[in-house]
Amino acid sequence: MTTDIHTLARRRFTLVAVLLPALVTVVALVAQVLLLSLVPGVVATHWGWAGTPDGFAPSWTVPLMTALLGLGLPALLFAAAIGGLRRGDHGASYRLLGAVAFGLAVLIAALGVATLGIQVGRTDPGVPLPVLLLPGTLLAAAAAGLVGWAVQPRLPWRPTPTATAAPVPVRAGERVVWMQGVTLARAGAVVLGIAFVIGCLAVLPVLFFGDPVAAIISGLVVVVLFVVVATTLRFHVRVDAEGLTVVSAAGWPRVHIPTEDVLSAEVVEVSPFGEFGGWGVRWSGGGRQGVVLRAGEGILVRRRDGGTLTVTVDDAAAAAGLLTTYAALTSGRRGD
């Protein structure tokens, strides 16, 4: 009995994004717990560019952060992608996510073990950072990422067929407006929520035990995470005589295509990860932009400059039809 390529891709992704990171993290945690009795109660956790320690924390926070980040980040990436893979979605973005998950786990595990290992037998946390430690851990993480990429099958994303929407009749002097709201898919909301919680938990030791500069940077990270979550949850989509406007319920970000810039508008099935590598306001190669909050129906607008905008939204046929009508009227007035 043979295994089809999509099932194989899903299984290999699970292996690389969850099982191997969990194994690496558990091994690192065992090593760190064994090292706790051999290091000072307070250890260096951050070093400046000169290699001198400038951030300190209780030694038990090192395995705590290893467990939190080493298990949490790969699980987050897995949760973001597994729904699409189960639906039969595919593309290089999924393969990259698996590789990144494994690489991150190795990086976090290696840094945690090294942080305690270089302070074994010390009576104070003033140990300088070995010159080759950081390059070595980065090299190990990169190697793990390459392995994670190699063991997953190549399954490139291919665009789904588009459908040209019928123009919506608009009489002279009549103003027609189409509006819809689109909310981030539940999986996306859960992933962003978990990312925000992990980010908050990860910076707590720095806020309480780190130096003021590190605490400020960590606080800014939390603020950025909050802004990302708040501005991605819901968007309003509007088509009128001025063109297509997509704006977050928070008021920003905002994307607008004037009617005179519209070459065509089509209905398409959207794959957020397969096409754009995730949810939200996204950019891809070839001038492709997307406001993609879920998989499924959407509108694809082709610009006159060759770029495109993809928006996931219900009733996409009506939106595309009305935009096509207004684009034709504008083009007629210009004599195109």
Score class of each variant (00 low, 15 high):
I108R: 02
I108G: 00
A114D: 12
A114N: 12
A114G: 15
T115E: 08
L116Q: 03
L116G: 04
L116H: 03
I118A: 00
I118G: 02
Q119T: 13
Q119Y: 04
V120F: 00
D124F: 08
D124V: 15
P125A: 09
P125V: 07
G126P: 04
L129I: 09
L133S: 07
L134D: 01
G136R: 04
G136F: 06
T137F: 00
T137S: 12
L138I: 14
A140M: 13
A141M: 04
A142W: 12
A144F: 04
A144H: 03
L146H: 07
V147G: 09
A150P: 04
V151G: 11
Q152D: 06
P153R: 07
P153Y: 09
R154P: 02
L155H: 15
P156D: 10
P156R: 08
R158C: 00
P159Y: 08
T160F: 10
P161I: 05
P161S: 07
P161C: 09
T162V: 15
A163R: 15
A163L: 12
A163K: 08
A165S: 05
A165P: 03
A166D: 15
A166Q: 13
P169H: 14
R171N: 09
R171Y: 00
A172I: 11
G173L: 01
V177D: 13
W178T: 05
Q180Y: 01
G181R: 08
T183Q: 03
A185V: 10
A189R: 15
V190L: 11
V190H: 04
V191A: 11
V191Y: 00
L192F: 14
G193M: 04
F196C: 13
V197I: 15
V197W: 07
L201H: 08
A202N: 12
A202Q: 08
V203C: 05
V203W: 06
F209R: 06
F209V: 06
G210R: 01
D211M: 05
D211N: 15
V213C: 01
I217N: 10
S218L: 03
G219I: 02
G219R: 03
L220D: 00
V221W: 02
V222P: 00
F226I: 11
V228T: 13
V228I: 15
V228E: 05
A230L: 06
A230I: 01
T231H: 07
T232E: 02
T232D: 02
T232Q: 07
L233V: 12
R234M: 02
R234T: 12
R234H: 13
R234D: 07
F235L: 07
F235G: 01
H236R: 12
H236G: 07
H236Q: 08
